[in-house]
């Protein structure tokens, strides 16, 4: 069942196109990474989905309705958007009390979400005295007040230290395991690959790719370097299997498009000795850059 659907969504800010006829869908009970480089249009898309920004064209709906028309079901959508703020003089619990009053969430939920996000001991601390990571947790606590079926999170890992990122990863996976539908934007494929089931990749406001994260990782086209005394024969066999092969020295080949298992199996079948086989690291980010063609793009 489709929970979130974006159909031909478009938005311009003056001469700049932020979102360009974007379409994708998010199924129930999935954790979906919404990926793209900075400036790709992720935040604008999420803000249009949540009724904060008016689209110039297209539609973004949750359970088939625009966010503002969801009525009581709106409580079942929790969101944390980038650049959300806090009154520095209001305590963490005070912040949640305001949000609970606005949404009609029961006050008993305040203690529950504080505990869920590890913020119970900081409930009486003023927001101005919270660290960035603690404020992120407080934002998540606010999003969870209505015990939502759907969570929409915009770059929740921004500014978190490694421990915070680790916590968030587990937290998001836990939300997914509870059967919630989670849409998380990020510009880090390697990060999203650790907790998401599916990924939607956009660049310059347009859809680049959508599908299971495993497919995206598979398409990462890891480069494999092989050292063999029969480089010519192996090269011909690999090319016939659809791989891209480049010479990397007298007895070395650099192969992309096939996995290590496929290369090793092929070499063994042909009786070609392989003395060494290595894969290049960091390939997920390289694949992401290839997908979004942003290498060398500033900021």
């Amino acid at each position: 069942m489709t929970v979130i659907e974006v159909r031909g969504l478009a938005k311009r800010f003056g001469p700049a196109t932020a979102v360009d006829r974007l379409s994708f869908a998010v199924g129930a009970g999935t954790v979906t990474g919404f990926l793209g480089p900075n400036g790709a249009g992720k935040t604008t898309t999420l803000r249009m989905l949540l009724g904060l920004v008016r689209p110039d064209g297209g539609q973004a709906v949750i359970w088939g309705k625009p966010y503002r028309e969801l009525g009581r079901r709106r409580r079942q959508v929790g969101a944390v958007l980038e650049a959300s703020g806090f009154h520095p003089g209001r305590t963490a619990a005070g912040h949640l009390r305001v949000r609970a009053a606005a949404t009609g969430a029961g006050r008993s939920r305040i203690d529950a979400v504080l505990a869920e996000t590890g913020m119970s001991e900081l409930a009486r601390r003023r927001a101005g005295h919270l660290s960035l990571g603690e404020r992120q947790r407080l934002s998540l606590a606010g999003a969870l007040l209505g015990d939502p079926e759907v969570l929409i999170l915009d770059e929740p890992a921004n500014g978190l230290d490694p421990a915070g990122v680790l916590w968030l990863r587990g937290f998001l996976r836990q939300l997914g395991d509870q059967g919630r539908t989670v849409l998380v934007s990020s510009h880090l494929l390697a990060e999203v690959a650790q907790f998401a089931d599916r990924a939607v990749v956009i660049d310059r406001g347009r859809l680049v790719s959508a599908g299971p994260v495993t497919e995206l990782v598979k398409a990462a086209r890891q480069a494999i370097t092989v050292r063999t005394p029969r480089a010519g024969a192996l090269r011909a066999a690999l090319i016939s299997e659809g791989a891209a092969v480049q010479d990397a020295g007298a007895d070395r080949l650099e192969i992309t498009g096939l996995g290590t298992e496929e290369v090793a199996t092929l070499a063994a079948a042909l009786g070609i000795p392989v003395y060494e086989m290595t894969t290049e690291g960091g390939s997920l980010e390289e694949a992401f850059l290839r997908l979004t063609a942003t290498e060398g793009r500033p900021g």
């Binding site: 949540l50 009724g51 904060l52 966010y67 503002r68 709106r74 969101a79 958007l81 650049a83 959300s84 703020g85 806090f86 009154h87 520095p88 949000r99 606005a102 949404t103 606010g142």
Partner: peptide, 18 residues
């Protein structure tokens, strides 16, 4: 105007879109 200066307007209009 404090809602816009402190960027709390986002949460305010998420919680009450009217």
């Amino acid at each position: 105007s404090g809602e816009f200066r402190l960027k709390t307007a986002t949460d305010t209009y998420l919680d009450q879109p009217d």
